[in-house]
């Protein structure tokens, strides 16, 4: 973009995901949900969603089987810590094959 076109410009940022890139790459531990223990998954009714509530990174879905967006999940483990039935375990990333990462 030629600088002549920059007239009257200051930094006006617009919203989009991944400002810091695919922050999933920061992760050392991966949250794995055991839907057999997960309250909404088990009951088939919306409930609990502590993982969704406490996620600092907007990567947990508020769905009956909560999904974690591994593209951006930083692996902090708060969801695992806060999950009332203990349905989430943090598993070392090295345990997963490239296949799993697709």
């Amino acid at each position: 973009m030629a600088t002549d076109d920059l007239r009257v410009l200051t930094s006006d940022s617009h919203a989009g995901p991944g400002d810091a890139g695919r922050t999933g790459s920061w992760r050392v531990l991966r949250p794995v949900i055991d839907y057999a223990k997960c309250a909404p998954a088990k009951s088939g009714k919306p409930s609990c969603f502590y993982c969704w509530l406490y996620c600092p990174d907007t990567v947990v879905s508020k769905t009956l089987q909560p999904q974690i967006d591994l593209t951006y999940c930083k692996g902090c483990g708060i969801c695992a810590e806060e999950c009332p039935p203990g349905a989430i375990t943090m598993v070392e990333e090295s345990k997963f094959s490239d296949e799993d990462n697709r």
Binding site: M1, T3, D4, L6, L9, T10, S11
Partner: peptide, 14 residues
């Protein structure tokens, strides 16, 4: 999108 320096350059030109 430009960086800091382009914004400064633009201010100077303008």
């Amino acid at each position: 999108a430009p960086g800091y320096m382009e914004l400064r350059h633009s201010l100077d030109l303008e």
